[in-house]
Design a protein around this nucleic acid. Structure first.
Length: 126
RNA sequence: CCAGACGGUUGGAUGACCGCUGUUCGCGAAGCUAUAUGCUAAUCGCGGAGGGAGGAAAGUCCGGGCUCCAUGGAGAUACGGUGCCGGGUAACACCCGGCGGGGGCAACCCCAGGGAAAGUGCCACAGAGAGUAUACCGCCUCGCUUGCCGGUUUCGGCCGGGUCCGCGGGGUAAGGGUGAAAGGGUGCGGUAAGAGCGCACCGCGCGUUUGGUAACAAACGUGGCAAGGUAAACCCCACCGGGAGCAAAACCGAAUAGGGACGGCAGACACUUCGGGUGUCAGGCGUAUUUCCACGCCGCAGUCCGGGUAGGUUGCGUGAGGCGUUCGGCAACGGGCGUCCCAGAUGAAUGGUCAUUACCUGUUUCGGCAGGCACAGAACCCGGCUUACAGACCGUCUGGCUUU
RNA sequence: UGGGGCGUGGCCAAGUGGUAAGGCACCGCUUUUUGGUAGCGGUAUUCGCAGGUUCGAAUCCUGCCGCCCCAG
C-alpha cells in the first residue's frame, strides 16, 4: 500500500516549508523539506498522519511560460515515480525548478531527486 | 531561368508504456425513506465511450457584449479621443472602394490627410533684413567737393564735361551673399535702373458651368500676387465618450468573537448624567470531586434571528460561432439554405518517457554518424490593431534574360 | 486585471525644441625623495530601440524592449 501524496495549494504552506531552511541543491533541482510536528493536528488545516505533501515552484528566471510549464511537468513526472516509493512519511516537500531542469536528461533528474532525499535523510526503502 | 510585388494556407507524422482534467453512460459505496426487487440533487470509487492550447493563446493599444454602481430628461462646461470622401460593421483608432500628395522602370507601396485671410506664441546660429518685410554690397538718378580732361585767362581764377574716387538726397529689388525658409517661377517687352509695370505659359486665389452621392477633377472667365512655415505649440471647428471591472456580480454558508429577539432563573445597599453604569457584599462558573479558605472570570444557562469571514457553487461557453453552398455587391460585407457542437483549469489540467520516421545543417570510407527542428501556453467572451516567428505549399502580377 | 514611474559616458546624474552641464572614476603631466593631497590637460555618449512631425528631436507623437513600484 503506497502512502497518499497530496499537493501543497496555498502560499502560506510554501512559506512554512521554505522557513525551515532545510534544503538540498542538486544540478537539476532544489529540494526543500519540512517534517510536520505531531501537535499540528489541532490546527485548522489538519492533515492525516503519514501523508506526504508535495509542491512545485518554477520562477521566472527559468524562462518564459512554455519553458516554466515544461520544467514543472518534468519535475512532476519524476516526483511521481520517486516520492510515493521512497519519501519519508509525514513530511512536506517543495521542489524548485532550475534552468538546468530543461536540459538535464530524465534519468539524471531522477537520480538528482533520490540523492536529495538521501541528503536530507528523508530516504525510505520501499 | 533570374530578380521582385501582392494575397492566402499550413505551423511535422506514427506507435508503446505510465499519467492529468472536464463531459457522458453503467455499476458500487454513500445518503433518503413507507425497510421493498424503492429513489438519486450533491459526494467518492471502478469500468466503458468521447473531448482536451494558438495564429498569434502574447503585448494589453482600441472597440463591444456581460455584471455591478451612479443617474428624472435634455443640454452646457471641463477633460480625453477621433479628424479627406463614400460605404461596411454591434462598434472601432479596424476593413473595403475612391480622391489628393509622395516614392518606384513596373507590379505596387507609404501618408494623424480638417482649419494658418478668429486670435496668441515660436522660427536658434548666420544674415542688411525672419513676418506691420528689409536695404549691406550692388544698379540707376540728382546735387556737391576734390582730382582729371578741354577751352579761356589779367595766372588769382572762370566756364564746360562728369570716365574714376568721396559725401549727401532719392529710386530699385534684377544680381551678390546668409539661411531650412528672403513675400510666386520662366521668357519676352518695358525702364534712368528696375519691379506683375504689361504680356504669354505655369502656379495660386475667386466665380461660373459640367461630371461625380461626395472628397475632387476638368473647362471657361476673372484677379494681378494679396495669403511664409509650424496646430505630433496653444487654439478653433465637427463628431464621439457616465464610472468600474469576472479578484465584476449572484447564491449557499462552518468555527470563533461580537450584535439582536424571546421566555426562564437571578439579590441587597451606596453613588450617579436615571437609558443604564460603577463599587461592596451576596450569587454563579473554573482550578478532577466534596467542605472551608484563597485566586481568576462573570449576570447565568437555553432557543431562535440577521449581517457576514474562511470555504464552496453559479457566472463558465449555442456564440456578432465554425464549415459548405447559393444569391446580391467592384470589394469590405450582407441575405437565404444545409450541416456541426468544438478546451474549461483555479499552486492552475491539456502531459512524461522511449522508439521509428519526415525536414534542415555539417561530415562521410556513401553504409552511416553528429547536431538541430520557429515564435510561443487559454483564464469571462467576441471584433480589430501591434509585436514575435524555423520552414513548407498555393495563386495572381511586374521587370529582365534566353529559346521558339 | 487595473494604475504609475524610470531608461543620458564605467557610476551618480542636470538638461522639457537650437546641436548634451557637473561630480566621482580612468589616463597623462606638474608639485613631492616617494605615495597621497592639490593644480592643469585629455579620453569616451547611435541620450533604451524603431519609425514619424519639424529647417532642426534627448525633448513632441506612435509602436516596441527592459527594469521598478502601487492596488485588488
Amino acid at each position: 500500500m503506497l502512502p497518499t501524496v497530496l499537493r501543497l495549494q496555498r502560499r502560506p504552506q510554501f512559506l512554512k516549508v521554505a522557513g525551515t531552511r532545510q534544503k538540498w541543491v542538486a544540478p537539476g533541482l532544489i529540494l526543500q523539506i519540512r517534517r510536520r510536528p505531531q501537535d499540528e493536528q489541532n490546527e485548522t488545516e489538519a492533515v492525516p498522519e503519514g501523508v506526504i505533501r508535495l509542491g512545485f515552484t518554477v520562477s521566472k528566471k527559468v524562462g518564459n511560460a512554455v519553458q516554466r510549464n515544461r520544467a514543472r511537468r518534468r519535475l512532476r513526472a519524476a516526483a511521481g515515480e520517486v516520492f510515493a516509493q521512497h519519501a519519508a512519511l509525514g513530511c512536506d516537500f517543495v521542489v524548485i525548478g532550475r534552468a538546468a531542469t530543461l536540459k538535464r536528461s530524465y534519468d539524471s533528474l531522477i537520480k538528482d531527486m533520490q540523492a536529495s532525499l538521501k541528503g536530507l535523510k528523508a530516504w525510505r526503502e520501499a
